[in-house]
Each structure stands twice: as structure tokens, then as C-alpha cells.
Amino acid sequence: MTMELFAVFLGSSIRLAMPLLLAAVGELVSERAGVLNMSLEGMMLAGAFGGAVGSWATGSPTLGLFIGVLTALPVAALQAFLTNTLRANQIVTGIGLNILVLGSTTLAYREIFGARSREAIPGFPVWSPPLLGDIPIFGEAVFRQIWLVYAAIVIVVAIALILRCTAIGITLKAAGEDPRTLERAGLSVIRVRYGVILFTGLLAALAGTFLSIGDIHTFTEGMTNGAGYLAIAAVIFGNWGVGRTVLACFVFGSATALQFQLPAMGLDVPNALLIMMPYLLAFLAVAGVVGRQTAPRALASPYWG
């Protein structure tokens, strides 16, 4: 691989990993507190849809981003209500919400765009940070990204610090490991869990808008295409730690980037194998092949108080 190709590969790996990263770190926060959001896929799709429609209607990708968040939050709120107030099965309701969002966004997309589908939608411009952008070969290919990429890095670092060093981090851990103790300490498990699910919805919405107005500047029906499930796989592969989850997202992003790079390099690796690799890696991880997995003890079990 030449330097130039490697730089392009690195740049596209980062670009492809970012939506996964935002969604996975958001999901990690929920899972630390004992909630499994299978609806992550639906939240992302709602965000992608709201972002695209908002950006198209207002002409401003920034407003689109806000509208994307506003579209995804009701999905998260519904998931939170089902999970916490109704104590419903988190997995089943999550899958139901995904079907509902896929159906609704497809319907609404056809209704709004109709025959004008594939219309270009205003998206975020790419931008190179000073100094980093001037590095030869790599500057252009790796660091010329939309600002959301840099924002995502800041968000992830902030979340890592909050989880590790603050009382919020300990509260979330308690909600996921031993909710009764949290309740005895005078905090409401249900409130904490409402909070984390809405937070996951926020980050999933950012991830979704990244896909629609950050990356390809259009919306297609069901465009998340399993990215939400992949983000959940990244959390599992990451063994519920921020560092390893981030690593998993980059591995998954690189695997996707390789699909486009390998043919350019004349290597004949089956496409299916590369697409499958993230799922295969996650599967090996949950199968206990790469060390013991330690999920939060109360993960996916409703709290009855």
C-alpha cells in the first residue's frame, strides 16, 4: 500500500467509524446504567431522516442537525417510557420501535420527496484544522473532515472522563450493577435510566445526521442499514469500556473502508467476508473467545423498586 492510499484509507476509516462511535458511546452510557436500547438503530434512522428533511427545508445543515435531534428524541422517550414506566422487555420493544421508525420514515420520505428522491440536500462542508491540515500527504486525506468529526472526538473524551472521574459515572455504574443500592442512597433508578436513554437518543441522532447530512448529503430509505446493531456490537466487543468500544468502532470502520480499498489495490478478498467481519468479531467476543465479558449485572432487566 502506498503512502497516499494508506492516507485515504485512514481518512475514510475515520469517516466511516464516526457514526458508529457516536452511537456506540451513547449506547454505552445507557448500558452502564442497565438499559439495552435495541432501538438504537431506529433512533439513528429517525435522526438521519430529521436531519435530512430539516436541512433540505431550511437550507441550513446546522438547523437540520437540531431537527434531527428533535426527531430522534421522541423515539428515545418512547423507549424510556416502555423500559422504565411499563417495565417492558427492552429487546422486544426496541425491535418493535425499529420496525415502526423504518416504516414511518419511509412513508414520510415518500410523502415529502415523492418523485424528487435522490435530491441533493445541503450538508456540512469539510474543513481542515490549522497545522494538522498542513501535514504532507496525510493532512489533506486524513484531517479534512466535517466539524462533527472533531466534535465527536471531544464528546467521546468528555464522556470517558465523566464516566471515570465523576459522581455521575459512579451513579450510572450503580444503576447498572446494583440498582437497589442506588435507590437506598436516595437516588431514583427510574430517573437515572430515563436520563441515560434520552442521552443515548441525542447521540444516536448525531450519529444519524452524520450519515445523512455529514457523509452522503441525502436520505435513503432504511439508510442506517444495521449501523445501530453494529454500534451495539461495538459496545459488546468493547466489553463495556470506553477505550475498547472506541477501538472496536475504528476496527469496524476500517473493515468497511477496506471493502472499497482492496479492489483498488487489486486484492481479491470476498466482499461478504469484510462486511461480515464486524459481526463475526462481535460474535467471537460474546462467545468468550477474546477474554471474559463482564456485562453490567442488571443489563436489560427492568427495575421494579
Binding site: 418512547l78 416502555l82 411499563l86 417495565r87 417492558a88 422487555n89 422486544v92 420493544t93 425491535i95 418493535g96 420501535l97 425499529n98 420496525i99 415502526l100 421508525v101 423504518l102 416504516g103 414511518s104 419511509t106 412513508l107 415518500r110 430509505e221
Partner: peptide, 19 residues
């Protein structure tokens, strides 16, 4: 997609209420 919306509603309603 209309049928999907209906299916999604059914799942969410049944899982939410019945459980």
C-alpha cells in the same frame, strides 16, 4: 411501509402492555 408502521405499533403495544 404502511404495513411496517402497523406491525411496529402492534409490537410496541403488545410488548408494552402485556408484559
Amino acid at each position: 411501509a404502511l404495513v411496517m408502521v402497523m406491525q411496529g405499533l402492534i409490537v410496541v403495544a403488545v410488548a408494552g402492555a402485556a408484559f
